[in-house]
Computed example of a mutant assay.
Amino acid sequence: MTTLTDSATQAPFTEPNPYATPAAENRGFSISSLVLGLVSIVASYTFFVPAIGLVLGIMALNREPAARTMAIWGIVLNAVMLAGAVLATLGFLVFGLAMLPFAFL
């Protein structure tokens, strides 16, 4: 005598599979933020590189808790370089305006 059971009423296999590979962690935003932070040391005058790295680092804090350290370092590097670029630009602007009366002598 055979009995037929449909698969919808059976409980699924719930034991963990010891041979399953772990899912790859997504660390793209934090790595990008850190790399752009390092690149912004050289290219901070562009304003775009540190600004994009800062945004990616802030997004990585919310989305990637496993890569929090890289995201924080990216935020710190990008913020420091962005602030330095803004201060340097303001300094050059003030110096240029201060020297403007002497340009026509």
Rank of each mutant, 00 (worst) to 15 (best):
T2K: 13
T2C: 06
L4A: 09
T5V: 15
T5I: 14
S7D: 11
S7C: 04
T9V: 11
Q10E: 15
A11C: 07
A11F: 05
P12A: 15
P12W: 04
F13R: 04
T14D: 09
E15S: 10
Y19K: 09
Y19I: 03
T21Y: 03
T21R: 15
P22D: 08
P22G: 09
A23F: 01
A23Y: 08
A23S: 14
A24H: 14
E25D: 12
E25K: 14
N26V: 10
G28F: 09
G28L: 15
S30H: 01
S30P: 06
I31Y: 15
I31N: 05
S32M: 13
S32P: 01
S33D: 04
L34H: 01
V35H: 01
V35N: 06
G37W: 06
L38K: 03
V39A: 04
S40A: 15
S40H: 02
V42Q: 12
V42F: 09
T46W: 14
V49C: 08
V49Q: 06
A51G: 10
I52G: 05
I52N: 09
V55A: 12
G57D: 04
I58M: 10
I58R: 07
A60Q: 00
R63A: 09
P65S: 05
A67M: 01
R68P: 00
R68G: 05
M70Q: 12
A71P: 01
I72H: 07
W73H: 09
G74R: 06
I75N: 00
V76W: 02
L77H: 00
L77M: 14
L77W: 00
N78D: 14
N78I: 03
A79M: 03
A79L: 07
A79Q: 10
V80I: 15
M81W: 03
M81Q: 11
L82T: 02
A83G: 10
A83M: 10
A83K: 11
L87R: 13
L87D: 11
A88F: 04
T89E: 10
L90V: 07
F92Q: 03
V94S: 13
V94D: 07
F95S: 13
F95V: 08
G96Y: 03
A98T: 10
M99V: 08
L100H: 12
P101T: 03
A103C: 02
L105P: 00
L105K: 03
